[in-house]
Design a protein around this nucleic acid. Structure first.
Length: 250
DNA sequence: TGAATTTGACCATC
DNA sequence: GATGGTCAAATTCA
């Protein structure tokens, strides 16, 4: 963080950026504190992305808030880094195309589902053959990208082990006013489902696996990139009955 | 005719 | 350089 502040040559925009970064970090800190309280009072709180509890934010939403705040702060810092300095090279604009924005740092999670309908309006913007993959990957962005600046995107690919299922990766949270995604009954009625919540740097992965045969929720953290993967990273939770009923309501 | 999808080319990342 | 992600012109559809 010491790179962020440069008091000697700080302009008005630098000050604004500093304020924005501070604001994002404070928001992230608040969300982390709420998450801590939530887990202290209910360690078995359902982390599922589509938690239906209305009275408070789910742990997933809090995690998403934390990551979003940090991502925002980092993007401000990164933009500053890229834009500052007279020698920052301009990208070529062949065919009038600008710099492509990649979202590797955005909050990402993957679900396996028998249908792709999640109650959000998506616009397909690309399809690609993937190496060593039987099925192409389709790329969708939120229809409200331009009117509301929503940056949510998803990638859909048929699951090779079971072509009736679709592996859908959501990247970024919806910032539009559209209805939040809701899992369908067909999703839950499939034998098992799993979702992956990836953190921003992809160093770790949280995998939630719900098994209908024996109602357990497996939360698996994958730190493969850090080379610390072990059986200790896998935690099985017997679900609290009330949470389980919430879980089956979708 | 406007909106949505397809598709080839461009760009970023590893 | 290979591969995946995104753009935007061309095409299709309602």
């Amino acid at each position: 963080m010491k790179n962020v502040v440069c008091p000697k040559s700080e302009s008005v925009s630098d000050k604004m950026k500093r304020v924005m970064i501070k604001k994002e970090l404070v928001k992230g800190q608040e969300a982390a504190s709420q998450l801590k309280l939530l887990l202290l009072h209910n360690p078995f709180h359902c982390p599922f992305p589509f938690d239906t509890q209305q009275h408070s934010l789910s742990s997933h939403q809090l995690i998403a808030n934390v990551l979003t705040c940090f991502t925002q702060a980092l993007s401000i810092i990164t933009d500053d880094h890229h834009c500052s300095g007279s020698q920052s090279k301009k990208t070529s604009q062949k065919g009038g195309r600008g710099r492509y924005l990649r979202r590797r740092s955005a909050l990402t999670w993957t679900i396996l589902s028998s249908n792709n309908d999640d109650n959000h309006a998506w616009r397909k913007y690309g399809q690609k053959e993937i190496l060593n993959s039987e099925f192409p990957r389709s790329y969708f962005r939120c229809c409200h990208k331009y009117d509301q600046g929503c940056g949510a995107i998803k990638q859909v690919q048929q699951y090779e082990k079971n072509p009736d299922m679709y592996q859908t990766t959501y990247i970024g949270m919806h910032t539009c006013n559209a209805k939040p995604p809701k899992a369908t009954h067909s999703t839950i009625e499939s034998a098992n489902w799993e979702s992956h919540l990836l953190n921003s740097d992809r160093d770790s992965m949280v995998t939630n696996v719900y098994d209908h045969q024996s109602p357990t929720l497996t939360i698996k953290q994958d730190f493969s990139k850090r080379n610390t993967s072990s059986d200790d990273d896998v935690t099985d939770f017997k679900l609290d009955p009330c949470l389980l009923s919430d879980f089956k309501e979708f």
